[in-house]
Simulated assay, not measured.
Amino acid sequence: MRTVIATARRGHAGLFGFAVVMAAATVVLAVVALFDQRTLLDAPLWLKPIKFTVSFTLYGATLAWMLGQLRVPAPPPRPPRRERRCHDRQGFLIMATSFSTHRWGAAAAP
């Protein structure tokens, strides 16, 4: 059991934290449901929020665990310096032309 929790925590810490918070909210809502006997259309008022927190807990914990099962792939090799510089220039030209056409279009509009 400890390895499953450790794998889930390692898989995605934020998602694991979300699952823990939802589990705590489930417990709180269950206690509230015991003391608050109101109903809506003959169903306990707190049943729907409890169902949501249970489903979010199970989904978050399962997804965090599954992400922990993945092997981290090796990063792709970096392109040569000359190629990176060329890509940087192309990106700058695309950004500059899109910005300038946006500005000219705004100036031409009444």
Results as ranks from 00 to 15, higher is better:
95 M>H: 05
69 Q>V: 07
72 V>H: 13
80 P>D: 14
103 R>C: 07
61 A>I: 03
77 P>L: 10
64 A>M: 08
103 R>I: 06
38 R>M: 06
28 V>M: 05
12 H>F: 05
37 Q>F: 10
43 A>F: 14
35 F>Q: 10
89 R>T: 10
3 T>I: 05
84 R>P: 02
55 S>K: 08
101 T>R: 12
101 T>I: 10
88 D>I: 02
14 G>E: 02
53 T>D: 04
30 A>P: 05
56 F>R: 03
48 K>H: 14
33 A>H: 07
84 R>A: 04
48 K>A: 13
91 G>I: 00
79 P>G: 09
7 T>F: 01
59 Y>K: 04
108 A>K: 05
99 F>Y: 05
56 F>M: 13
15 L>I: 04
70 L>F: 09
13 A>K: 10
97 T>A: 10
96 A>P: 00
100 S>A: 13
109 A>W: 00
7 T>L: 11
41 L>H: 07
49 P>V: 00
7 T>N: 13
12 H>Y: 07
20 V>A: 14
24 A>M: 11
18 F>I: 01
42 D>C: 01
104 W>N: 15
72 V>R: 15
74 A>E: 15
85 R>Y: 02
29 L>C: 01
27 V>L: 14
94 I>D: 10
28 V>T: 04
47 L>P: 03
84 R>C: 02
106 A>Q: 10
25 A>P: 04
87 H>Q: 10
77 P>Q: 07
25 A>L: 15
51 K>Y: 03
36 D>I: 03
86 C>A: 14
17 G>P: 03
103 R>H: 06
57 T>F: 03
102 H>V: 04
7 T>A: 13
40 L>M: 08
61 A>G: 10
101 T>F: 09
109 A>R: 10
15 L>Q: 05
18 F>P: 00
53 T>N: 09
91 G>R: 07
22 M>Y: 08
73 P>T: 05
68 G>P: 05
106 A>H: 08
2 R>Q: 13
28 V>P: 00
107 A>H: 08
48 K>N: 14
71 R>G: 15
84 R>G: 02
55 S>G: 11
59 Y>C: 12
1 M>E: 09
91 G>H: 06
6 A>Y: 01
1 M>C: 04
46 W>H: 10
24 A>P: 07
71 R>P: 09
29 L>N: 03
85 R>K: 06
96 A>W: 00
107 A>V: 09
74 A>W: 06
